[in-house]
Computed example of a mutant assay.
Amino acid sequence: MTAFTMRREVVEALGRRQVVAVDTIAHVRPEDEGDVIVTGSHGGVSSGEYAGRVRIAAVFFNDAGIGKDQAGTAALPYLETLGIAAGTVSHDSALIGDAQETWSCGVISALNRLARDAGFTPGEPARDAIRRVYGENAR
Rank of each mutant, 00 (worst) to 15 (best):
T121Q: 14
H42I: 11
R8G: 09
G67D: 09
A110W: 07
F61M: 01
S109C: 02
R132C: 01
N112D: 01
V133E: 05
E12N: 06
L14F: 10
A86L: 07
D63G: 08
A110V: 00
Q70S: 06
C105Y: 09
Y50K: 04
R132T: 09
S93A: 12
F4H: 06
G34N: 10
A115E: 07
Q70M: 08
A126P: 03
S104E: 15
D32M: 09
I56V: 15
V133Y: 10
G44C: 03
E136F: 00
S41E: 01
S41V: 04
P30I: 01
S93E: 12
M6D: 14
R29S: 09
R131E: 13
T73M: 09
A71V: 00
G43H: 06
R7I: 03
H42G: 15
V22L: 01
V107T: 13
L111A: 03
G87P: 14
R16F: 03
E101P: 00
D98V: 15
N62G: 08
D23Y: 01
G87N: 10
A58D: 06
G40N: 01
A13K: 15
G40C: 05
F120N: 11
S93T: 15
D63E: 10
I108A: 07
A86C: 06
A3L: 14
A3M: 05
E49K: 06
F120R: 11
R8H: 10
A74T: 00
R132Q: 13
I56R: 03
T5M: 12
A57N: 02
G83F: 02
N137G: 11
A3W: 08
S41T: 07
E31V: 04
V20R: 03
G119W: 11
H91S: 15
I96H: 10
V107L: 04
E124W: 08
G44Q: 01
C105D: 11
G48S: 08
A94K: 05
V10L: 08
Q100S: 11
D63F: 03
G67M: 05
T88S: 12
A99F: 03
I108P: 02
I37L: 14
C105Q: 13
T88A: 09
A57F: 03
G72V: 04
N137F: 06
E31P: 00
A21N: 07
L111F: 02
L111K: 07
V59W: 00
A99V: 04
H27V: 11
G97V: 08
R116D: 01
T5F: 15
E12C: 15
T121P: 02
R131F: 13
M6F: 14
F120E: 08
R116C: 04
R116H: 08
R113Q: 14
V11Q: 05
H27C: 11
L114F: 00
I37W: 14
R127A: 12
E33F: 03
